[in-house]
Design a protein around this nucleic acid. Sequence first.
DNA 1: TTGTTACGGAACAATATGTTCTATAATATT
DNA 2: AATATTATAGAACATATTGTTCCGTAACAA
Lengths: 189, 189
Amino acid sequence: MDRRQKKTREAIFKAFTELLAEKNYNQIAVQDIIDAANVGRTTFYAHFETKDYLLKDLCEDLFGHIIDTAMGLPHGHYHYSSGSETDSVFLHLLRHLQENDRNILELLSSQNNEIFLRYFKSNLKMLILTQYADKGLLKNSKLPVDYLVNHISSSFVETVDWWLSRKMKESPEVITEYFLGTIEPILNC
Amino acid sequence: MDRRQKKTREAIFKAFTELLAEKNYNQIAVQDIIDAANVGRTTFYAHFETKDYLLKDLCEDLFGHIIDTAMGLPHGHYHYSSGSETDSVFLHLLRHLQENDRNILELLSSQNNEIFLRYFKSNLKMLILTQYADKGLLKNSKLPVDYLVNHISSSFVETVDWWLSRKMKESPEVITEYFLGTIEPILNC
DNA sequence: TTGTTACGGAACAATATGTTCTATAATATT
DNA sequence: AATATTATAGAACATATTGTTCCGTAACAA
C-alpha cells in the first residue's frame, strides 16, 4: 500500500478515536474528523464512503487484531496456574486489554462504548465457538448451544464493561475469577 | 394536559416508533418524523428539543410503564407453579413483552434494538435490587453485589434479545427456565 | 526520468437543522 | 356563551453539514 494512503488512513483513525473518546458519535461531524486529522475533504471521502463505514473499518482494525492473537493461542494451554484450562483465553484477553493496544480502552469506556462492545461481542462468539465447541463443553448442558454461546459472550463483555466502569481497579486474574464464577457452574467441568 | 398536546405527542411517538422499526436511528431525519406524524415543524420543536430527547422521552414512556407494573408485584408471589418464588418478576416481564404493549417488540427486535435494550437493562438493575436485595439472595455469593446485579440484568436482557432474534418460538415459561438455569447456580437458593 | 496515483483547496448543489413570525383553530376559564 | 389562553400550521430564514467535482501539485513506483 502507498505510504501516503497508510499515513492518511492512520491519521483519520487517530483523529476519529480521539473524538470518539470525548464526544458522542452522533455529534461528531465528518468535518470535525477532517480538521482533527488534518486532511483534505476530498481525501477523506476517497478513503471512506461515510462516517459509518469509517467506524466499521476502525472496529475491524481494532478487534481483528485482538481476536486474531487470541485465536492463535493453543486452546488447552495453561496460562493461569490455579485455574482450569478453559480460562486461558479470557485471561489473555483481559491482559491484552490492560495493555491498551491502540487506545481501545478509551473507546470501550467512552460514552460510545456500546458500539465497540457490540463488535467485541460478535467477535467473541466466534472465538468461543472454536474454543469450547471442540471440547464438548457446550453439549452436556440443558441449555441450547447457541443460547449458551450467547450467554458466555455477553457475560464476558459485560464483565469487561463493569471492570472498565470501575477504572480497572481489580487485576485481570480477579476479574477472570469473577467471570468464571458465573459461567463454570453452568458448564460441566 | 391539553388534548392537543397529548394528541401531537402520541402522533410523534407513533411515527417515530414506526420509523425506528424500519430504518436506522441515524438515518431518520427530523423531517421524516414530522412528515410521518403529520405535524408542523414548529410543533415538533415545541415538544422536543432534539431527536435525541425525543428518543429519551419515548424510552421513559415505554419502560417506565413496564417496570412500574413489575415493581408493583408482590415480591414473593407465586406466578409459576413449578418454579421458585424468585422467578415471578422475570416471567411476568416476558409475558408482558409477549403482549407487545406499545409495539415495544418491534423496537426491541429492530436494527435499533441496542438503544432500547440499554434502557431496559438500566431499569432492570433497579428492579432487581428491590426484588433480590431484601431477600439476602445477593449477599452470600463470592461475587461483589453490584457485579452480580449487573450480571443478572445483563443476562436477562441478553436472553430477551436472543428470544426475539428467534422470533419468540419458545414460551415465556421455557425462556424463564433457560434464564434461571444460568443464574440460579450462582445464587444461594 | 517518466508515468501513475494520492493529495489539498476551492467551489458547488443538495439536504437537514433549528428559529422566528403570523394567522388560525382548539381549548380552558369565567 | 363570551373571552382569554394556548397549541398548532405554514412560510421564510440563516446556518451547518454532506457529498461531489474540478484542477493544480506533490509524492510515489517503475
